[in-house]
């Protein structure tokens, strides 16, 4: 059975790449002596996949791994056994059993929440003015940006990829498209905003955290964890 595991990626582990997290999980599963299913063939490996890769340097409070098990303990025991052999920065937060034929986290993801905090030393002097300008820019009916791909360039409307933008205290909250069919990176929206003012966006300006990942069901966003059930 496939179990979806929710974990965080905090602290210095934001500098660990996607593939290294994958390898870390495989080792953690073995340390926890979990009965993970292996692929057949010459070099068997664990049947597991991670949801959308997180950019290097970004933290997350909501990452997902889908893992196939041959047998499994209860939800709480699974979480406890993993955390007993885990580092705090990658703490396992929750787990759900997925229904048979459920698609993996990577393929169903359509949106994500991000919280962007001004990094120390990068906060604009007049933060209200900054937000005013930003929301003015994002209030336009469309935000057309030319994206350079390997072979050609395409025009995308960023506006259509935004679900929600909100100022929360000094932080900027974004609910935006994420996934294989439509993907907006927070830094792309910001760099287009800065470009509109004739300035260059410095990616170090914000400490970014991914708060949640969503799929879509009946026209509504649904957190990836909610696709499964307790066990």
């Amino acid at each position: 059975m496939k179990i979806r595991i929710k974990f965080q990626k905090q602290g210095a582990l934001k500098f660990i790449g996607h593939l290294d997290v994958m390898r870390y999980f495989q080792k953690m599963n073995r340390r926890a002596k979990l009965d993970v299913r292996y692929t057949e063939g010459f070099s068997p490996h664990q049947e597991m996949s991670l949801a959308n890769p997180l950019s290097l340097g970004m933290t997350s409070s909501s990452e997902y791994a889908d893992i196939e098990f041959l047998s499994w303990p209860s939800r709480q025991e699974l979480i406890d056994r993993l955390n007993a052999v885990n580092v705090p920065e990658l703490w396992v937060l929750d787990a759900r059993m997925l229904p048979e034929k459920a698609k993996n986290a990577m393929s169903i993801t359509v949106a994500a929440d991000y919280t962007l905090k001004f990094r120390e030393g990068y906060k604009p002097e007049d933060i209200d003015a900054w937000y005013e300008k930003f929301f003015e820019y994002t209030a336009q009916p469309e935000i057309i940006v030319t994206k350079q791909t390997k072979t050609n360039s395409v025009e995308v409307d960023l506006k259509a990829q935004i679900h929600e933008l909100e100022r929360r205290g000094n932080d900027l909250f974004m609910k935006i498209d994420t996934g294989s069919h439509s993907n907006l990176k927070p830094e792309l929206l910001l760099s287009s905003f800065y470009a509109s003012m004739g300035q260059e966006f410095n990616e170090l300006m914000f400490e970014m955290n991914r708060d949640e990942l969503y799929g879509e069901e009946d026209g509504k966003l649904k957190a990836l964890l909610d696709y499964g059930y307790d066990f």
């Binding site: 602290g11 582990l13 500098f15 290294d20 080792k27 340097g57 580092v87 920065e89 990616e203």
Partner: peptide, 14 residues
């Protein structure tokens, strides 16, 4: 963020 393989310098390995 500006150097190659920052994981070399952060420690905290299992």
């Amino acid at each position: 963020l500006s150097v190659e393989k920052p994981a070399r310098y952060i420690g905290g390995e299992y």
